[in-house]
Structure formats: structure tokens, C-alpha cells
Design a protein around this nucleic acid. Structure first.
Lengths: 262, 262
DNA sequence: CGTCTTTTTGAATACTGTCAATTTAAGTGG
DNA sequence: CCACTTAAATTGACAGTATTCAAAAAGACG
């Protein structure tokens, strides 16, 4: 139940002009204006000016709820929307030839999903809610229309895509050159930083993903993830209770992947 | 010397309106029109119409030569150009905190580099020539100008960036879920396919990168790369003579990473 | 021709994966 | 509400794979 306190701030996000109920949202999707969104600083951090945001507002993005375990889109679906997470957590994943799942990312409030679909017009990965979630659906065609009339907006979209490329670079780095402890340490510190950016505690949080999903993302088996959590606990770096994490010694965690000896 | 025959077709690429000498190029950079470029089908495969290409031509990209071992740009350099490889091979890499190099990609004729710089206005990785090379320098500011006046062009740029994201997804997959043999097999088959798309033999080619660079890219040590080459040779899948590769049994290579048993 | 780099190969070690058993948590249905 | 089933997480023992250290051979280059 300790996770409830952590969830509270996310649940508190409400759109000023449309304080509708959840029931209404399920039937008639809410529209959301970026200018009044509590997440705008996270979502559009690429130097958007006030006038850019106003232009975005002309689109009034549709909100959509996705329940825990449900998919927002599937690998191969036609690409028409990109999505901004409003609340909750998603995973991106793709299915390997042998049927196993490969997790390629986790997405928290204010982060974007679906940009990999621009390339071929179909989503290259699936997005699945790890808890009850809410997203803004951004019609890509409309976005490019706005962008065509406004080069500033175009820059924003380009930067967002480039940011995704950079993000994946660093993950490749992680997968290519780190051992199990370093990978998990980097993962936890990254999560902590993102939690902090969202106003949560960076030292204590609840994992929304399973050991298996973490392992898939970090390129290791779920047993190794579990063992590494235990090792960190024995080293006095963490307290772990299933999915509840308390970081006791962040500097020690940082050292564990900066002090590369092998 | 066997590589000379492989290089010949690349060297043969000449721009129709400007058949200048290499010496001239070093002093007064040549300008290149996309419409007359032999690589246009590789470089702009995202559904560009004839009129789009004409608009691109108004920019007349500057050509630049980069000698083997030299950097086209460094990690941290201000981002102003993206680059299209005209001939030769590049590697993208970044420097880890401990000073080691992490290779994040290899780029052949017709492929783009530098898109990771859009995010923060500085290049997130370095690009180094693995042999004597030639690139088209594409001023990003001009490109966005053209794109602003032409939404079709904007789509092209967006698709190119998205394609980069998808490419990195598949590399992550590789790093996250494959063993040494599978990684090297996937790498070689990918190279073979790209050679074929450029009109070279897909069964016999010359590697432009060292075992160490391959290892860095694939997340394994150079010794393991070497051992895996030897293993493939013993299995009758390859003939390896240093950097000269002949693929004897492509189907066998494919099986080696499709028949995933672990 | 000597030096430096790259590549190959061997032997020992370390790490991660595999298999299996147990515990705990979370649903499900009577 | 409780027994039952299912899923998630932990832990141990062992096997397998990749890394490390070391040495030697083969080119590359001035």
C-alpha cells in the first residue's frame, strides 16, 4: 500500500477546462490543451515559445485511458498518432522471431511514445500499460500540418526524435559495455532521476515493471536481476522489498558503474 | 589488394555537372546535386517525389573529403550539418567515462550521419573515416527552411530520423538477447545485405573495421570476435582471411541466429 | 628492416544463464 | 471468507559462455 502515496501526485493531474469524471472520459474522450497541462515542462522541454504552444492548443489532443496490461498500440499497427503519457507507466516492446518479448523502453508521465512509427507508417514496437494510464493522442498528420506552417514547431518535433536517438545510444552503450551490477545501477539511477523530475522522491519509489521486464530491457535474465538486487542490498546500497525500492547510498550506486575495473 | 576490386565501383561515382579532380576538391569543395547523384536511391528512399528532389537541388550540397582515420566531427561539436556518405565507410562512436571507445554504428555510401545532433545542437557522437571517404555536407538550417516550405520534404527528414530509431531498436534487440555467434552472424548478414544494395557482392567483401571495433559495436571483446570468426570457418559457414570475408553458407548463418536454443 | 598494430590462439578465471525448489503475493471461484 | 490456482520473486547448485591474461604470428608502415 505504500505505493498509494507515490501515486497520489499523478492522480491529482486534472485538466483545468475539463474537470470531467472518469466515466465521461471513457465515453466521450476529453480534449486537452498543452498550455494548461501540468506536464508541459516535461513534455515539451525543447525551447517551445508561448506562441508555439498556442498553435499546439488548436489541436486539442484527445485523451485516452489504457488499463493495466492493455496495449495502446501493437507492433505493425498503422501509425497515425504519437502519444504523450499523462499518467502511469508504459513499456515498449517487440516480439522476437522465437516469440519472446524484448523490452525496448519504459515511459513515464510527460514522455512520448510511438515515434518509431514514422519510418514505415506502422508501429515498430508495441506499447503496453504497466498500470492504469492516461495518454494524449497526438494526430501525427495534424502535427505535421502545424509544423509546416511553423518552423519552430518543426524543430520541436525533430528534436524530440533526435532525443530518442540519443537515448537509445546511451542504452546501447549500457548493453555493450556494462556488467549486471552496472546495468542495474544505471537503470535505477535513471529511474530515480526521472522520478525526481516529476516531483517524486528520487530515493524511494515503486517499480512498475517485473524482474523479467527489467531483465529484458537490460539484457539479462530475471534471476540475475533478482540476484543483483540482493547483492546491492547486502552492500548496503539499497533496500528492496519486491517492487518497492529505497536507495540508501546513491553515490555508491554511481561508483558501481563509474569505477569500471573490467 | 583484393579490396581494390571491391572499391572500384565506389570510386567510379562522379558527379555529372562537375567532373573535377581530387586536387580541386580539396581547395574548392565541389557542389553536388541530388538529382544527378548515383546514390539517390539509397540516400532518399522515403518516397521523395521529383519535385522534392528539385527543391533539394537548390541547396547543392557541399562535398567534403575525409581521409582514413580522420574525424568528420567530434562528440560535442556544434551541430550544423548532417552528412550523407558518398563513398567509403565511417564509424560513429562515443567515449565512455573511463576513456574507452564505444562504437554505435557503421555507415556506408548512401547512409546518413549526424542526426543525433539535432537533439541538443551538439553532436552526441563522433564520426571517423575507416578509409578515405567523401561526404555530402547538408546544412541543417537550410534543410529545415526547405522543409518549412514543403511538407513532403519534412516527412522525408522525419522518416529518416525515425528510421534511425528503428535501426537502434534492432541493435538493442541484438545486444539484449543474442550470444556471440548470433551477434556476429547478424552483423555479417546485415553487412552483406547493405553491400548487395550498393551493387557489390553480398557473399564476398572486405571489412573496413577492426575486430576491436566490431566487438565494441556488438558488445563483445575483440578476442571473442576473432574466436567466433574462427568457429564459423570451422563450421564451414565462412572463409576468413583477416578482413576479407567470403560467406559460403548464408542460410547456415541465418539459422545460427534464428534457431535460438538458449 | 625494425617497430607498431592487428589478429589469432591457449589456459584459467569470472560471470551469467539454466534448472529446480521454495516462498510470497495476487487473483479466482466456491 | 477461504481454499485453490496462477504468477512473481528469491535462492542454490551447476553448466556454459565470454573475459582476462599471455604469447606468438602476421601484416602495415615509416
Amino acid at each position: 500500500m505504500s505505493s498509494a502515496t507515490l501515486e497520489a501526485p499523478v492522480r491529482a493531474i486534472r485538466i483545468a477546462p475539463c474537470p470531467a469524471t472518469a466515466q465521461m472520459a471513457a465515453v466521450t474522450p476529453l480534449k486537452t490543451a498543452c498550455s494548461s497541462c501540468h506536464l508541459r515542462d516535461l513534455c515539451l522541454p525543447c525551447g517551445m515559445t508561448g506562441s508555439d504552444v498556442e498553435r499546439l492548443d488548436s489541436l486539442m489532443f484527445t485523451r485516452r485511458r489504457v488499463k493495466a496490461g492493455q496495449a495502446l498500440y501493437h507492433e505493425g499497427d498503422r501509425f497515425a498518432y504519437m502519444y504523450a503519457v499523462r499518467s502511469g507507466t508504459f513499456k515498449s516492446s517487440l516480439t522476437l522471431v522465437d516469440g519472446r518479448e524484448q523490452v525496448s523502453g519504459f515511459h513515464m508521465a510527460g514522455e512520448l511514445m510511438g515515434l518509431d512509427g514514422v519510418a514505415h507508417g506502422t508501429h515498430a514496437s508495441s506499447a503496453t500499460a504497466l498500470e492504469d494510464t492516461e495518454v494524449c493522442a497526438i494526430p501525427y498528420a495534424h502535427l505535421t500540418e502545424v509544423a509546416a506552417a511553423n518552423s519552430g514547431m518543426q524543430h520541436v518535433v525533430s528534436r524530440l526524435m533526435s532525443r530518442e536517438i540519443v537515448r537509445e545510444h546511451s542504452l546501447m552503450m549500457l548493453l555493450g559495455s556494462m556488467n549486471a551490477e552496472e546495468r542495474l545501477a544505471a537503470f535505477l539511477l535513471n529511474l530515480a532521476q526521472r522520478m525526481k523530475a516529476r516531483g517524486y522522491s528520487s530515493s524511494e519509489f515503486h517499480l512498475r515493471m517485473s524482474r523479467q521486464e527489467i531483465g529484458s530491457y537490460l539484457g539479462m535474465k530475471l534471476e540475475t536481476v533478482s540476484r543483483t538486487f540482493s547483492a546491492f542490498q547486502q552492500q548496503g546500497l539499497l533496500e528492496v522489498d519486491k517492487r518497492h525500492i529505497r536507495i540508501i547510498d546513491p553515490a555508491g550506486l554511481t561508483r558501481s558503474f563509474e569505477t569500471r575495473l573490467h
